[in-house]
């Protein structure tokens, strides 16, 4: 399981780092076009990887049910939630949206208990809640009410939670790169259909060379993100994996502190809560019993 934890930690680092490097790039601000383009590039990269590893046969040998599950992962993980999330953000604020998105580990924990009989471990639950509270301090925000936009973001988060559960199930039989390819390939196909229907597909042609380079740079990061995520998820419980992802935002704060040398009191308090969360989760990882380790690989 150590390998899985390191890989998911790497996913969180990539997530935290990718936000930090945005300041250096040229924007492609239409979020649907940007998400669609990145997904297409990553799907092509993963396709090339499969070809280079002479794994085309793996795709040929996929059963109908497995194709269907990959299609569902693309639909409820790689497309619909993005559409809901951005519309939700338009109706609420970034902090509220970001906080709701960070509650995903709770729904994953519930779904994992229902479908995989993963036990809700107290240390993991409290560790996750400390991480969530720490994140709220970093966002300088405590949620107070639920608007229509928040509900859309909550719905998107639930879609992603279900996607993680289905992915964990599919990863029992398929290698991570196939699951990642399925998510990006079918996800980008659905987003392209959405862009065509809403008349935004022409915007793809209008992006300039600097923006193309920026799409490629961010796609490399997204490639790293999905590869480390699915590879890690294969080797560990899905509830633990999604909880570790909460470390993405503190990593952005840490990188900012290293870069600027400035940190506020409220951020120090947030960092303290996150540290408590990390300690609780580390205690859980080191105390995990052999029979639970086996469960993690199922």
């Amino acid at each position: 399981m150590k390998k899985g934890i390191l890989l998911v930690l790497l996913t969180a680092i990539i997530s935290g780092f990718s936000i930090f490097i945005n300041q250096f790039g040229v924007s492609v601000i239409n979020p649907y076009v940007f998400t669609g383009l990145k997904n297409i590039v990553v799907a092509v990269m993963l396709g090339c990887l499969l070809l280079a590893m002479k794994e085309r046969r793996l795709l040929k040998d996929l059963k109908k049910k497995q194709w269907l599950l990959l299609l569902v992962i693309g639909l409820i993980g790689g497309s619909i939630p993005f559409l809901l999330f951005f519309k939700g953000l338009f109706l609420t604020t970034a902090a509220q949206g970001s906080f709701i998105h960070k509650t995903m580990f709770i729904y994953v924990m519930v779904f994992a208990t229902l479908f995989f009989k993963e036990r809700i471990n107290k240390k993991l639950l409290f560790g996750g809640l400390f991480l969530l509270l720490g994140n709220a301090f970093l966002l300088k925000f405590i949620p107070h009410s639920l608007s229509q936009g928040d509900l859309l973001i909550l719905l998107a988060t639930l879609f992603w939670a279900v996607e993680n559960i289905i992915s964990k199930h599919v990863l029992k039989e398929l290698p991570p790169r196939i699951v990642a390819w399925g998510r990006m390939f079918f996800g980008s196909a659905f987003i392209l259909i959405f862009l065509v229907i809403t008349g935004q597909v022409g915007l793809i042609i209008n992006i300039n060379s600097n923006q193309i380079i920026w799409v490629l740079v961010t796609s490399v990061l997204l490639f790293g993100y999905v590869m480390t995520w699915y590879s890690g998820l294969k080797h560990m419980p899905v509830s633990l994996a999604t909880t570790i992802l909460l470390l993405g935002a503190p990593i952005t704060t840490l990188l900012t502190f290293i870069s600027t040398g400035i940190i506020s009191r409220i951020e120090i308090l947030g960092a303290g809560l996150i540290l408590v969360g990390v300690i609780l989760i580390l205690k859980l990882i080191y105390k995990i019993k052999p029979q639970e380790k086996k469960l993690c690989q199922d």
Partner: peptide, 17 residues
Amino acid sequence: VMVSNGFIIKKVNKKEA
């Protein structure tokens, strides 16, 4: 601007925004 995790991460063109 674009905002993520409580930080402004990028300035964007007014017309595009």
